[in-house]
Amino acid sequence: MTSSVLGEAEPEDWAEPEDWVLARSGDPAAFGVFFKAYRKRVLWQAMRSVDSFHDAEDIAALVFLETWRRRDSVRIVNGSIVPWLLVTTNNVARNFSRTRRRHRQAMESLPAPRHQDDFAPTVNDRLDGEPRRAAVRAAFARLSAKEQDVVSLCIVQGMQLADTAAALGVPVGTVKSRLSRAKSKLVDLTVDLVDSTSLAGGVQ
């Protein structure tokens, strides 16, 4: 089901930034076309931060809601809205994860219920049993917010350093240093996590 959803065709009649001007003006139909054009890209980005496709869908919905709400202040880089969408996805995913952690902590503070078998770990292992993919996602989560943004734009999106700097509003030198740090961390973390996954049976 996941592959069919992520593989849906993107509209061929979307052109940046002309069509975005119409969507930004508040035209619901134009924004609907915009949503269809970028939903898959946002979903893939969200999946790098969470291990559940349903969570990724929730994050994507929040990203487009935020895009609609802040449409007058969206930053276009070289005629593309993609960099802004990816950075916004990272921000929403971080907030989403924090909210989940708080909820989990609140639930853990409640009196323990009578024991019942929990099948969730088994289901998660079956859905995400590939150790390296899980390790890369876990390693990405351990990067700082600023490092996640440069990785998303430079490595995942393949943007030039100058365009990434423009999207983030920082000097090119800052992007270079963040990217260098992030690459080093990802190499170390991925190796460590893959090793521990092989021993423990999966990244939790």
Score class of each variant (00 low, 15 high):
Val5Thr: 10
Leu6Trp: 09
Gly7Tyr: 07
Gly7Val: 08
Glu8Phe: 06
Glu8Trp: 09
Ala9His: 10
Glu10Val: 15
Asp13Tyr: 13
Asp13Ser: 06
Ala15Ile: 12
Pro17Thr: 08
Pro17Lys: 08
Glu18Tyr: 14
Leu22Ser: 04
Leu22Lys: 08
Pro28Gly: 02
Ala29Val: 13
Val33His: 07
Phe34Asp: 01
Phe35Asn: 02
Phe35Arg: 11
Lys36Cys: 04
Ala37Asn: 06
Ala37Lys: 15
Lys40Asp: 01
Arg41Phe: 14
Arg48Lys: 08
Ser49Gln: 08
Val50Thr: 11
Val50Trp: 00
Asp51Val: 03
Ser52Glu: 08
Ala56Cys: 04
Ala56Asp: 00
Glu57Cys: 14
Ala60Asp: 03
Leu62Trp: 01
Val63Ser: 07
Val63Asp: 04
Phe64Asn: 00
Glu66Leu: 07
Thr67Ile: 11
Arg69Ala: 05
Ser73Ile: 01
Arg75Tyr: 04
Ile81Gln: 03
Val82Glu: 06
Trp84Val: 01
Thr89Gln: 01
Val92Cys: 07
Ala93His: 07
Ala93Ser: 12
Asn95His: 15
Arg98Asp: 14
Arg98Phe: 14
Arg98Glu: 12
Arg98Met: 06
Arg101Pro: 06
Arg101Ile: 11
His103Asn: 08
Arg104Leu: 15
Ala106Pro: 12
Ala106Phe: 15
Glu108Trp: 15
Leu110Gln: 09
Leu110Asp: 00
Leu110Cys: 02
Pro111Val: 05
Ala112Asn: 08
Arg114Phe: 11
His115Cys: 00
His115Ser: 05
Asp118Gly: 12
Asp118Ser: 13
Phe119Gly: 01
Ala120Phe: 14
Pro121Gln: 07
Thr122Cys: 11
Thr122Trp: 03
Asn124Glu: 13
Pro131His: 10
Pro131Glu: 08
Arg132Phe: 10
Arg132Gly: 07
Arg133Pro: 05
Arg133Asn: 09
Ala135Phe: 03
Arg137Gly: 12
Ala138Ile: 02
Phe140Thr: 04
Phe140Glu: 11
Ser144Gln: 07
Ala145Ile: 04
Ala145Cys: 01
Lys146Asn: 03
Glu147Val: 09
Gln148Phe: 03
Gln148Glu: 04
Val150Ile: 00
Val150Glu: 00
Val151Asn: 05
Leu153Ser: 02
Cys154Arg: 15
Cys154Val: 15
Gln157Ile: 03
Gln157Tyr: 11
Met159Gly: 04
Gln160His: 11
Leu161Thr: 05
Ala162Tyr: 04
Ala162Pro: 02
Asp163Leu: 05
Asp163Thr: 01
Gly169Glu: 02
Pro171Trp: 07
Pro171Phe: 10
Pro171Ser: 05
Val172Ser: 06
Gly173Phe: 14
Gly173Cys: 02
Lys176Trp: 13
Lys176Met: 09
Ser180Arg: 07
Arg181Leu: 07
Ala182Cys: 10
Ala182Leu: 01
Lys183Gly: 01
Lys185Pro: 12
Leu186Val: 03
Val187Ala: 13
Val187Gly: 10
Val187Arg: 14
Thr190Asn: 09
Val194His: 01
Val194Gly: 12
Val194Gln: 05
Asp195Ser: 14
Ser196His: 09
Ser198Phe: 10
Ser198Ala: 12
Ala200Cys: 04
Gly201Trp: 03
Gly202Asn: 13
Val203His: 15
Val203Ser: 15
Gln204Asp: 14
